[in-house]
Design a protein around this nucleic acid. Structure first.
Length: 550
RNA sequence: GGCCUGUUGGUGAAGUGGUUCAACACACCGCCCUUUCACGGCGGCAUUCAUGGGUUCAAAUCCCAUACAGGUCACCA
């Protein structure tokens, strides 16, 4: 029996051969240095922060080199598949402005000539490549059951040997073709394994774009390449797909570093040029003084929906991810305030080889700064969009008082250094609820009066202000002058300095008086500029809040 | 257990043999500005780069060991 016949026997019904596919997918005609890379998730659920981080870096590197970024779905494990997985992946990523040049578009469509981009639809291709290996006597059928494999492992643990299917432990390797055929004809189930030419005592070198030079023992495990369902394992699919899709850079999580020897060997066995690898370290979390990888199951902040619910702008998340990836990004943004992430030149070498603690504080800060730079109308629109999803009562108020609300968001916003009141959109209501009568139901103890607490005095100050000094028309300076007059009338210094110089001559200073007017109006001692707030309220509503007859 | 990687302040980090070697940012604290807050300004916050050895005239930077942390050892990706 020739090797060719053997291959046909082991993998029948394979339509094309390796050469056919080799010709079908031409080399890409791209300029020097262009990076072709991919985001290759298995459709097991929504996109989480770690995946978003990787996808962000992948797209960025492809874009800045005029390369190609494509989406490939790795669904060779049918057990883990989730319904509509593809749709949610594409949607989640698009929400962050991460789009693909090529690959899967939705459950049924794709674009690009290197497809299919869904692994389960590439069975024939993988088998064609596996057949080549069998013909070269570099792959063979293996018959061990799960139970037998377990026994081998237990034995190895017992005698403290290296664990795995290799050397003398790889019993199926030693069957003759005829013996194997016999078994199969008798109905024995089988898988295809690589006949590894590696030597554990020799070293291979992985020149990782992020982690640098890593020396590892050669792979000598006869790893599975085709599973019993005829689909390939990750390792084999990676070889076939990234070779045929003409990927130049494989950017992936660093949990893959340890299997890089397998991948390098696979490329070598076929005589293909291996892609460059860039292994990204994971986002970490600190818990009880120990660091661990951010977990999809345990950590709510891992889900991108967490940020959506909080109303943290996606732009802020992207800014954060850029900072984590290349810490010089912040400095660059500082020097180029109007710059976009797209204009920044990211560098693999600047990506930290060790995992970074995921810093929610920092995201909140970025979010706050981002919102502060928005126009009042934008804050309104985005705040409303958030509220419509998560706080319908507040959404109704925003809609009912549109111009008024924009006015609130506009306070001290149009300056070089705008106010930073809102850390995220879910924070809006906490900051300004008192501006809406519908939300204003204070108790007496809610009023945060400071130095002046006497109800009688407060009442007199309020009524005097409204009757004698208040005017709806005045500009800020005039208004402030009136405040000073009011202070003086009640025995408070017109200027803080004056009070500090002669504390005995005054009961307090202008600040004490304006505090009364502020707290009586809002219950709060800390608010944006009082002048602007009064402007928004207008006379009637002020009289009402001050408990004075109109 | 084998193999691989990492370890600079509360956090993210810059810095890879010597001309500020501990930048910058977030957080925190203090002061100033100021009608409150916010903004802004100024200042504080690692005499030391996990620990112990070594190389060198000179090390956070090179070497070795130890400790700690992370990853990986599937017919999962």
């Amino acid at each position: 029996m020739t090797n060719k016949e053997y291959a046909d026997f082991l993998l029948p019904n394979v339509e094309h051969d390796m050469d056919y596919y080799e010709k079908k997918y031409p080399y890409r005609d791209l300029k020097e240095g262009a990076i072709v890379t991919r985001y290759a998730p298995s459709p097991t659920g929504f996109v989480h922060m770690g995946a978003l981080y990787a996808a962000f870096i992948e797209r960025k590197m492809a874009r800045q080199t005029d390369g190609v970024f494509f989406l490939r779905i790795e669904d060779t494990d049918k057990k883990r598949e989730v319904e509509n997985g593809i749709e949610s992946i594409v949607r989640d990523l698009n929400n962050f402005g991460i789009t693909f040049d090529e690959g899967v578009v939705n459950e049924t469509e794709e674009k690009g000539i290197y497809g299919p981009y869904i692994q389960s639809k590439r069975k024939d291709i993988y088998q064609a490549f596996a057949k080549y290996l069998i013909e070269q006597d570099l792959a063979y059928p293996a018959f061990e059951t799960e139970e037998e494999l377990k026994e081998i492992r237990e034995h190895q643990e017992l005698v403290k040997d290296r664990i795995g299917y290799y050397g003398d432990f790889a019993k199926s390797r030693f069957f003759t073709k005829e013996e194997a055929v016999e078994k199969i004809k008798n109905g024995a189930p089988y898988i295809i394994r690589l006949k590894s030419p590696g030597d554990f005592n020799k070293k291979i070198v992985l020149n990782d774009a992020i982690k640098g030079k890593i020396e590892m023992p050669e792979n000598d495990m006869d790893i599975v390449i085709i599973k019993s369902d005829g689909l390939p394992t990750y390792h084999f699919a990676h070889l076939v797909d990234d070779h045929l899709m003409r990927t130049t850079h494989v950017i992936r999580g660093d949990e893959w570093v340890s299997s890089a020897p397998i991948h390098l060997q696979l490329f070598q066995v076929f005589g293909f040029k291996a892609p460059k690898y860039a292994h990204i370290s994971p986002l970490m979390k600190e818990e009880n003084g120990a660091r661990r990888k951010l977990s999809k199951r345990k950590d709510p902040e891992m889900a991108v929906s967490y940020y959506h619910e909080k109303g943290i702008p996606n732009e802020a998340i992207l800014l954060y991810l850029a900072t984590v990836a290349n810490s010089n990004f912040e400095g660059w943004l500082d020097a180029n305030p109007t710059g976009k992430i797209d204009d920044f030149k990211m560098d693999f070498k600047k990506i930290s080889p060790s995992g970074s603690l995921f810093d929610l504080e920092k995201i909140l800060n970025l979010s706050k700064n981002f919102i502060s730079r928005l126009k009042a109308e934008e804050v309104y629109e985005r705040g409303l969009a958030w509220a419509e999803e998560y706080d319908s009562e507040f959404a109704d108020l925003l809609k009912k008082y549109k111009e008024y609300s924009i006015g609130i968001f506009d306070i001290e916003r149009n300056k070089k250094k705008p106010r930073k009141d809102y850390t995220c959109f879910s924070d809006l209501k906490n900051q300004i609820w008192y501006m809406y009568d519908e939300l204003y139901h204070p108790n007496k103890e809610d009023f945060e009066y400071q130095n002046i607490k006497d109800p009688k005095e407060i009442e007199t100050i309020l009524s005097t202000y409204m009757e004698k000094y208040y005017s709806e028309e005045e500009d800020e300076q005039t208004w402030f002058g009136h405040m000073k007059d009011l202070a003086a009338e009640f025995g408070y210094a017109r200027e803080v300095k004056e009070y500090k110089n002669n504390p005995d001559q005054y009961k307090g200073h202008i600040g004490d008086i304006s505090m009364v007017l502020r707290v009586a109006l809002t219950t709060k001692s800390m608010t944006p500029n009082l002048y602007d707030i009064m402007k928004l309220f207008g006379r009637d509503r002020m009289m009402e809040r001050y408990g004075l007859k109109k």
